[in-house]
């Protein structure tokens, strides 16, 4: 063929492009996080907006988080009994389930549920406000949009995800107990005793710290994608997808970082 092949971008540039955009993304998130902390400290404190967001992120998620917690606890009971029965250690089941739920399952799955439910909603709402110039209108009326829109959402995330994770944990234990004791005829006394002996306060703390960080990350990512959305309805749709996808990825990355920092082996 006589045609010259289309000029390919330099190999280095191609390889480095995702690295560059990752750094840009982190920079953007850092900038928004910084601005929301600065504007969160500065009065006025918009209590009604915060209450509305807590209701949206927290109260409206209780049923969903409880449901997922219940089934997660039930599944874990079955799986651990199955595994531990092989070497006759089924009296450990209560403790093992409690450890897994408190350190991993409750914060991670709660954050994922909140990202899917509240994070997508936030990204869609803020994205719509951006594309219909409502954010510009706020700014024109001398109201800082980060303070008005982002701060209440982030505080709600930071406060409500730990609360929801705790609910997840308690309901999960209940589910495991129900399946273990009623379904698989474990001894209820031993089940409870093993939870008491194996579960240390630090396990609960680690779970709550994770939940708090995840709550911050998931709402920050959702707000970032909504707040800076562009390109009309298509752009808002993409923002919503990105908010959930990167929110979930962020949870897993942070989970590893926090776990390796807080766990002494």
């Amino acid at each position: 063929m006589s045609d010259d092949p289309p000029k390919a971008p330099g190999l280095l540039a191609t390889v480095l492009a995702p690295v560059k955009s990752t750094f840009e993304e982190v920079g953007m998130l850092g900038d928004l996080a910084f601005r929301s902390i600065v504007w969160g400290i500065r009065p006025p404190y918009r209590v009604p907006l915060l209450v509305a967001q807590m209701e949206f992120v927290g109260v409206q998620s209780i049923f969903l988080v409880g449901l997922v917690g219940l089934f997660t606890g039930m599944v874990f009971a079955v799986q651990t009994v199955y595994g531990f029965r092989r070497f006759g250690a089924e009296n450990m089941v209560g403790g093992v389930v409690a450890l897994t739920l408190s350190r991993e399952m409750a914060p991670v799955l709660t954050a994922i549920m909140v990202s899917a439910r509240a994070g997508s909603g936030m990204a869609a709402e803020l994205g719509n406000m951006r594309s219909s110039e409502q954010i510009d209108a706020l700014e024109t009326m001398a109201v800082n949009p980060v303070q008005y829109l982002v701060v209440p959402r982030m505080i709600a995330g930071v406060v409500m995800v730990p609360v929801l994770a705790l609910i997840f944990f308690l309901v999960g234990i209940g589910g495991a107990w129900a399946v273990g004791v009623w379904g698989l005829s474990l001894d209820p006394g031993i089940f409870a005793d093993r939870i008491k002996t194996m579960l240390k306060p630090s396990d609960i703390t680690q779970g709550l710290i994770k939940a708090l960080v995840f709550g911050f990350a998931v709402t920050l990512i959702a707000c970032r994608h909504g707040y800076f959305a562009s390109g009309g309805a298509v752009g808002v749709g993409q923002a919503t997808t990105k908010a959930v996808v990167w929110g979930v990825v962020g949870v897993f990355v942070l989970d590893y970082i926090i776990t390796s920092m807080l766990t002494e082996i």
């Binding site: 219909s132 110039e133 409502q134 510009d136 209108a137 024109t140 001398a142 800082n144």
Partner: peptide, 23 residues
């Protein structure tokens, strides 16, 4: 800066092409 700009904006008003009402 942000605060000065917010102050200056109290003296401005804008009617947006696409209304920009808070829904």
């Amino acid at each position: 800066n942000d605060v000065q700009l917010a102050k200056a904006r109290r003296r401005f008003g804008m009617v947006f092409q696409k209304y920009a009402l808070f829904d």
